[in-house]
Structure formats: structure tokens, C-alpha cells
Design a protein around this nucleic acid. Structure first.
Lengths: 235, 235
DNA sequence: ATTGTATACTTGTATATACAATAAATAATT
DNA sequence: AATTATTTATTGTATATACAAGTATACAAT
């Protein structure tokens, strides 16, 4: 004889309600039995029936209102989304990672850059360009603009072992981070760096990451990946 | 005199615990006061203290174990992700949407396509190509492969008012849907259709959507957007 | 040294009860 | 007829209590 699993009573009630919702017997907007009605029909205390309804509300299946009752909630359409994995972190974990510093300098924000960063025109900005390798293969070209106020010593770093992103995270733990994904054509310098053939395979997936601390942009990073090496998806 | 908002007691306890966690006073793994300790120090019943801990556990800040206690949980690193909005649906909602059928035919699966769809080689597949317009501007080029078993009448549709995706959703409500994002170079036919200049702005963001029903691929759709018109981001 | 036992403490489930806040329906008053 | 109380039903908060189940510790017996 197999021992049947003993379900708690609130779980039984949850299944009962869930069943009526999923099967369509209680369409959206339907009022469910009240706590008292459920406690009577299932012969449990009100607190137990309450727990069932409350957890279902937490899960988004019900909405509850004092004085009115509990109602079958409008299901929220699942917005399709994809994860942004970090190709550099993957290479690092494999142990074959290396990084080449292409440039590391202070520039003055032109109109376009100032607008992008929320800076004044001619305000100093640190700009660095890196090429990230997985073994001998260049997998990512990076251009990063850094706010000098956030990381004053950025230009003095060597970035031989520490990835620039890790350094910034260390100096100034991230506040809000925003990502954008777009398709770009590799410019000639990027093409050379990434070892792409002209006119054939120079489509690149670019991820733009903007880190802000408070109302201040801390850094803006453009990560350019050859389309042949990088693809985003739901895993 | 302004009336101070009256916080429920369980909320006060939650804030107390949250404060200790967020400030780092209770690092990951720390045991929090037990339900009984909290109920004593806050002069509330055990059930009230319990509710505070339980809701915090629900929110992922604590893990609880019978016989052991409640512990500060390891924060799960928020995986950055971006939403895939539908440029066609946006155009539709503006009312300026239209769709041009470029081709609509039955083909035989070659080796590559068969592998992609999980079909046998030479198995019949419906292939259609569409061009979607927002007003006069071509915003999306679409190529879709459809499983004849799922939508036998696909080739007979007109797709003047009903978008192909809506038709398929109507015929066969979606099971599992998977998305991939990649960068591609527009081919010459796509360039012409989308009105792109040669060699300059032909980087495109391609979204591949694979709809499966059970273990069967129902449709595979490639949505190609000019990089200048389409960008993904967190909103 | 290992095993078993008792004990204390923890969270999980469940009950019975009380009162507050909200909203709708009903009755009473103007 | 319109307005105002009253009642009733609902969810929200809170308490006190009880027992079950899992864990660790101390202690005794083997």
C-alpha cells in the first residue's frame, strides 16, 4: 500500500479554485466564494480558507477587495523577453579570456555625446576601447564612456587582469542599469579588430549598457559582437 | 496636524528585518530572530511575527527551515533581459498598418530547413514572405515557415486584413514560443523591399520566433527590421 | 565510541475569536 | 423623492492557542 501524500487543507482549496479558473468555469471577473462560504463548504476555519484565497491572489489569479469579495483576475499577457548573457563572463569562466586595451584617453563631450550622457558640452569624459578575446578569437569590441566624477582613476588602470566592467562595479556599485540591443554595421576599425571580412560578415549585434547612479550617468558602454559569434535567446 | 499613516504591525517588523538585511548588518546566511523572539520583542502575537517573516521569505529575502530558523537568503543576481515588442502590433494600433504578400508557396524542406524545423528532408513546408508597412514606410520583412499539418489552409489565405501571425494564433493557439535575436545583413531582395541603400545602412535586427505545439514545430518566423527603425530595450 | 532517548526550539498547519475598514443593499427620515 | 442611517457581507489585521514535524543538543545506556 502506497501512502497517499497528505495535502494541507489550504492546498486542497487552492486546487479547487485553480481548477475552476483554469477550466474556464469561472471566467475572468467571476466572484469566487467568500472566505466564509469556503470555510463552511470545506469545513475549515475562515483563516484556512483565507490563506487559500490570499495565496492565489499573491500568485495573480485573484484580485481581492474589502467589502466586495474575491474575483478571477485578468491574466497578464506574458511579455516575451530574452536574456542578455555576457559573452565575456562566459569566456572568463572557461579560463581562456584576455583583454587588449585599444585606447584609453580623456576627451571632451561633443554635442551628441553630451546629450547621450546628460553632460554639458566640452565636459571631460573618459573614453576607452577594448578588445576582448576568447583564446585567440576576438569575441567583443567594447567602447566605454566613463564619468570622471564616478571613477577618477579610471585612466590609470591597466586592465590586464581586471575587466573594465568589474573595475567600475568595484569602484561604484551599480545603481540602475539599462540595456539596449541594436544591429550595427562594423566600422572599418572594428572590422579589423574583430577580424571580419569586408562587405560580407560585418553585421554586428550591439548591446548598449547605461549605468546610472542617482540622476548621474556613471558609464555608457557599447558592446559590439560579430553576428556570427553572438545570438540572444531564451534558454 | 497631519495624520501619520498607521502601518500594520507585521509591516513594521518587515521593515525592521529588511533594514537589517539591506544595510548589511545581517549578511547573507545570518539567522534572523525566530518568530517567538520577534513576537516577544515587538509585543505581538507569534502569528503576526510569523506573517512578517513569511512574506519576506515569499519575496526572496529569507529562507526558512523547520527546526532551524529563518536565514538571510543569497540574493539572486537579476539576469538582465529586454522585452521584445512587436513593431507590427504598434503600427496596427496606430491604424496605418498594411501588409504586402511577397510570396506564398509550398516548398520541400532541404537539409538545413529540415534540421531547423525537425522535419524529414523533402517534407512539404509552406513558406511565405511578407512586407509590413507603417503607412508608406516598410518596417518589417517577414519570412515564415509553416507546418502544413498545423495550418493546412495557410496558402489559401489572403492576409489583406488579418496578419499571418494572428491567423496562425487563431488556427492553432500557441503552445511554447521561443525567441532568438541576432544581427544580419539584409540580402539584396530584402534591401530592395525595405528601401535600404546598398552598403550603408543594411544592418538589420532579426528576431526568430519558433512556435511549437507539443514536440512539433508549428511555425518558424524570421522578422527582419532595419537597424535604423528598430531597437530593443528595457522600458 | 556509538547508539538511543529526552528535551528544547524552530517552523508549518489549523482553529476560534475579535474588531476594523470597506462597500453595497436596505430601512428610516426628512 | 431624496437624503441619511442602519444593517449586512466582505476582506484586513491581530491574538491566543494547539498540535505536528524537523533539527540540534545534552545525556544516558550500551
Amino acid at each position: 500500500m502506497v501512502n497517499a501524500i497528505k495535502f494541507p487543507q489550504f492546498e486542497v482549496i487552492k486546487q479547487y479554485v485553480r481548477g475552476h479558473i483554469n477550466s474556464g468555469r469561472w471566467p475572468v471577473g467571476t466572484r469566487t466564494p467568500s472566505e466564509n462560504e469556503l470555510s463552511a463548504s470545506f469545513s475549515v476555519s475562515r483563516m484556512t480558507a483565507r490563506r487559500a484565497l490570499q495565496e492565489l491572489a499573491q500568485e495573480g489569479l485573484l484580485t481581492r477587495a474589502p467589502g466586495l469579495g474575491s474575483f478571477v483576475a485578468q491574466p497578464v499577457p506574458a511579455k516575451p523577453s530574452i536574456e542578455l548573457h555576457n559573452i565575456v563572463a562566459i569566456a572568463q569562466s572557461k579560463g581562456a579570456y584576455s583583454c587588449q586595451v585599444l585606447s584609453l584617453e580623456q576627451i571632451s563631450a561633443d554635442a551628441e555625446l553630451a546629450a547621450l550622457l546628460g553632460f554639458e558640452i566640452d565636459q571631460p569624459v573618459y573614453r576607452a576601447r577594448f578588445l576582448h578575446f576568447d583564446g585567440r578569437k576576438a569575441i567583443q569590441w567594447q567602447e566605454i564612456y566613463v564619468n570622471p566624477k564616478v571613477a577618477p582613476a579610471f585612466l590609470k588602470q591597466k586592465f590586464t587582469r581586471v575587466v573594465p566592467d568589474e573595475y567600475l562595479e568595484w569602484i561604484a556599485p551599480s545603481g540602475h542599469v539599462e540595456y539596449r540591443v541594436s544591429a550595427v554595421l562594423a566600422r572599418s576599425s572594428q572590422r579589423r579588430a574583430l577580424g571580419l571580412m569586408k562587405d560580407s560578415q560585418n553585421a554586428c549585434l550591439q548591446i548598449t549598457r547605461i549605468c546610472t547612479r542617482g540622476s548621474m550617468v556613471a558609464s555608457l558602454s557599447k558592446l559590439v559582437h560579430p553576428a556570427s559569434l553572438y545570438q540572444l535567446g531564451t534558454t
